[in-house]
């Protein structure tokens, strides 16, 4: 039986330092292929560097809400927040990213697909950003029960659904052997007090294996650049401490209780 390894890179949020470290790790492990899942910009500095790197390395991927908004000239990120404080910080991120992303990359973002279907060893894999049905839907572990995920796998005719957007990685194997994976993000830490970020390796052979891989990167350099770009101190604190300080109100009870703020 052939075994296929697929590297999945969730939201990058302009963290090109983490992207470089992730790509090096993927190369070292010799993955068969790698895909990005959208939200290339936001939060971090110098938003041209991520699309530049992805294009240069020939990595394929899909649109997130950020790419949809930037390529269509929208005035906000359509992140899906409802709380005023969440929206306040989301707007700072978006305005900075929109202003500092070249038109050529915005146009390229507009050409990215909303979803991708892969097939490995007869398994149908669907890559999405928020969820297969909605680009900015948040799929959290504690609010994505199995019956709901099963319905989604049925509706979208997939054996493996992959998403990102929420920022926290998780994996559920359903009773019928199908899988739903939130690949996490490499843009900011996972609100766990560690400065590392996470990407996902999917191995499809006789069975399906999902590994979440921690990536250490030069977060000090990222923090310095964010300061130089006058990005909010709250964002920098997250990079330096591993705890989320903004865009938290959207977290369900369990995920909120696990963080410091």
């Amino acid at each position: 039986m052939q075994v296929t390894t697929i590297a999945l890179i969730g939201g990058i949020y302009s963290n090109y330092h983490a992207l470089l470290a992730t790509l090096a790790d993927i190369d070292r492990r010799g993955a068969d292929c790698a895909f990005f899942l959208g939200d290339l910009g936001a939060f971090g500095p110098h938003p041209n560097r991520v699309p530049e790197l992805l294009i240069e390395r020939g990595i394929a991927g899909i649109q997130g809400n950020y790419e949809e908004s930037l390529s269509s000239g929208a005035t906000d990120c359509n992140c899906g927040y409802t709380d005023p404080r969440d929206n306040h910080y989301a707007q700072i991120s978006y305005d900075y990213t929109a202003e500092n992303t070249s038109d050529v990359y915005k146009r390229w973002m507009g050409t990215l697909p909303r979803a991708m279907r892969l097939e490995a060893n007869g398994r149908r894999i669907l890559l999405s950003h928020g969820s297969p049905r909605k680009i900015n839907e948040f799929l959290w572990r504690s609010t994505s029960p199995d019956p709901f995920l099963r319905r989604m796998c049925d509706e979208y005719e997939a054996d493996v659904i992959v998403c990102t957007h929420s920022g926290l990685h998780w994996h559920k194997r359903l009773e019928d052997g199908r899988h739903v994976i939130n690949a996490g993000v490499i843009g900011r830490p996972a609100n766990d007090g560690g400065t590392n970020v996470w990407y996902t390796m999917l191995t499809v052979g006789d069975d399906i294996r999902v590994e979440f891989l921690p990536i250490e990167y030069d977060h000090g350099a990222l923090a310095s650049e964010m300061r130089a770009e006058r990005l909010p101190e709250e964002f920098i604190e997250t990079i330096e401490t591993g705890w989320w300080t903004t865009c938290l109100e959207v977290l369900p009870a369990k995920e909120r209780a696990a963080g410091r703020f």
Binding site: T143, S144, P145, P147, F148, R150, R151, M152, D154
Partner: peptide, 9 residues
């Protein structure tokens, strides 16, 4: 019934 219909919350 909700389990069969895939209710989320």
């Amino acid at each position: 019934e909700a389990r069969e219909l895939g209710v989320r919350e």
